[in-house]
């Protein structure tokens, strides 16, 4: 394993970009490498549309992966690295947009709609409340239809 990583360090420099994360890029410190992997899943590969740099084999993605790791080794925090990328490529480079005025609706819109929906549903349910009696509105069906439905429902509505 260690032998192959050392081997990789020698080899990969010369090989064409082939795959997403390559062995030669990986950090020796497993904790730091794990952080790098997590972080690069949140960074967009700019030239390949909707892939993270972790998934992409594009040259630019590889460069960004390498830079990201260098900065991790240098002791940068995750947010410092993100800031570094955003300064050059804008918010577009982040797959998880930062929460700010322009993205408030993105982050809280579904939640707000959920709350509104919940209020609506609560009002609806309370208004629909059964007084304990049977159905208030008779079904407006013709005799013919009634017969057909009865035939269909007879098998299973016995219990209800």
């Amino acid at each position: 394993m260690i032998r192959s990583i050392i081997l990789a360090l020698v080899l990969v420099v010369l090989s064409m970009p082939a795959f997403a994360v390559e062995p030669g890029e990986m950090l020796k410190d497993p904790a730091l490498e794990a952080r790098a992997r997590e972080l690069s899943k949140e960074v967009r590969c700019l030239v390949c549309q909707n892939q993270s740099i972790d998934d992409s084999n594009a040259g630019l993605a590889k460069d960004l992966r390498v830079i990201l790791r260098e900065r991790l080794v240098a002791g940068d925090s995750d947010s410092e690295i993100k800031t570094f990328l955003v300064e050059r490529y804008g918010d577009f480079v982040l797959l998880k947009p930062p929460v700010k005025a322009e993205t408030l609706f993105l982050w809280y819109g579904p939640f707000a709609i959920g709350v509104l929906g919940a209020i609506g549903v609560a009002v609806f349910l309370l208004r629909r409340r059964d007084g304990g009696g049977d159905e208030a509105v008779p079904m407006p069906l013709s005799d013919d239809e009634r017969k057909r439905i009865d035939a269909l429902m007879s098998e299973q509505d016995r219990k209800a």
Binding site: K41, E42, R44, N50, S52, G90, D91, F92, V93, L94, L95, K96, P97, E102, T103, F105, L106
Partner: peptide
């Protein structure tokens, strides 16, 4: 659709991906 909406509103580009 947010990237589309935001682009139309402000011209800002964002990405909304798996982490979101």
């Amino acid at each position: 659709l947010y990237p589309l909406f935001l682009d139309a509103m402000t011209g800002d580009k964002v990405s909304v991906g798996a982490p979101f």
